[in-house]
Structures are given as C-alpha cells and as structure tokens.
Simulated assay, not measured.
Amino acid sequence: MPPAPPCPCSSGLRYRECCARYHRGEAEAPDAEALMRSRYSAFALREVEYLWRTLDPEHPDRARPKEEVLRELRAVASGHKYPRLHVLDRRPPDETGTAVVLFYARIFEKGKDRSFVERSEFRHDGTGWRYLTGENRAPHQLSVPPETLTLATFPSPSGRGTG
C-alpha cells in the first residue's frame, strides 16, 4: 500500500491527519491559521464546497449565487498547481474577534508563477472560523523577499505596515 500523501498545506503531516477532517466536515479548524491552511489545501484538492462553507457571511461572494461562485472556484482550483504554503505571521483574535494570518502561497498556472503574499482576516461565526477578507501582493510588488515579511512589515495600500 502506498504511503498516504502529505497535506498540501505544508504542515508536514499526512493529509488524512491534517486537513481531511475539516474538508469532510468531521471537525472545524481550531484557529484562523488552521482554517487558512485548510483553505489552501481545499484549492489544491478542488474541495470547492469547503471553500464556500468557510466563507464568512459578510464575504462579498456570499451575496452571489452559490453555484456561480462554486463554478468560479472550481475553474481557479483546476487551472492551478499549489506546491507550497509558507505561514509568515499570525495574530490572535482582537477585541472585535478578528484574527489575522499572513502567508505566502506558491501557485502556478500553466508554468507561470502566480504566487502571492496575503494578509487574511478571519472571524469565528459561533460554529467555526471563517474567511472574511484578504489583501495580497505579488512578490514583484514587494521590496523584500516574501519569506521575510511579518504583519508589521506587510505593505498596506498607504505604504505603512498593517501590524
């Protein structure tokens, strides 16, 4: 029997021991970082229903028809390869309940590098953590190597860090 595949989220664990239980609905991600990792894995494995389920009710896609969003997610997930995820920094929930994770997603489309760094916000909806919003930058838009960024040094639109 071949060994179980590693989880696409780059945790170092096997998929069945990591994000699979979240994708199957057997458990909720325990924190914002785990949710972010499981969403990256969901893109890699085309688990679009999970991507829909883990959107915050206030995310703009929630106002659109579900089937339309799923069709778009399926197209994006199918057209890309997801070789590596780097979690760069995280901040626990603040007084509003919003947690933040900064990550560098390595993504390729037909051999072209589509990687990006994203500062994502998450909220707990009483059931589980949900993806609220994200602000991202392509590596060529950064003045430093992506792996060196923190929440304090991630460039916001005004040019200031967001931490």
Rank of each mutant, 00 (worst) to 15 (best):
R114G: 03
Y82C: 06
I107M: 12
H80F: 13
L55M: 14
P65S: 04
G134Q: 06
H124M: 05
R62A: 07
T54G: 06
S38I: 12
A44Y: 14
A75K: 12
R90A: 14
R71M: 06
L85G: 12
R74Y: 01
H124P: 02
V48S: 00
P57L: 10
F43L: 12
P93F: 04
A75W: 02
R62M: 13
R53N: 12
N136K: 15
V76G: 00
L35E: 04
T98A: 13
D113Y: 10
H86C: 11
K66A: 10
P83G: 11
E67G: 00
R91N: 01
L73Y: 12
R119I: 09
F116N: 12
E68G: 10
R62N: 08
A105W: 01
E72S: 12
F103T: 02
H59T: 05
S115Q: 07
V101K: 07
S120A: 14
V101R: 05
Y104P: 02
L45D: 01
A77H: 11
V117T: 07
A44S: 15
V101Q: 04
R91Y: 05
L132F: 09
Y50I: 06
P65Q: 11
L88N: 05
E118I: 07
D56Y: 03
L85A: 09
K112H: 14
L132E: 01
A77D: 10
F108I: 03
D89R: 13
E135H: 14
G126F: 07
V117F: 01
G128S: 11
S38V: 12
F116Y: 15
K81E: 15
G111E: 02
T96A: 13
Y40W: 13
E109Q: 14
L73N: 07
H124F: 10
R62K: 15
S115D: 01
T54V: 05
V87T: 11
A42F: 07
R90K: 15
L132K: 06
R64C: 01
T133I: 02
D125L: 08
E47T: 10
S120K: 00
T96D: 14
A34K: 11
L70P: 00
E58D: 15
F122W: 03
P65M: 01
H124E: 05
R64W: 00
N136L: 11
A63P: 02
G79M: 04
A42C: 10
R130G: 04
D113V: 08
A42L: 04
R71F: 06
S120V: 01
R62E: 06
D113I: 03
A75L: 13
E58H: 09
R39M: 10
R119L: 14
T98D: 05
S38K: 10
G79L: 07
Y40C: 07
D89H: 12
T54K: 07
V48G: 00
M36S: 10
I107A: 09
R84C: 09
K81V: 12
A75N: 08
L85R: 15
G97C: 06
D61I: 00
P83L: 14
E68W: 06
I107H: 07
P57V: 04
E68T: 02
L132Y: 07
T127I: 11
L73D: 01
L132S: 03
V87C: 13
D125F: 05
S115R: 11
R84G: 03
H59V: 09
V87Y: 14
R90M: 02
R130N: 01
K112A: 15
Y104K: 00
R123M: 10
R74M: 06
V69D: 04
S41C: 12
D89Q: 10
R84A: 14
W52H: 06
R137T: 04
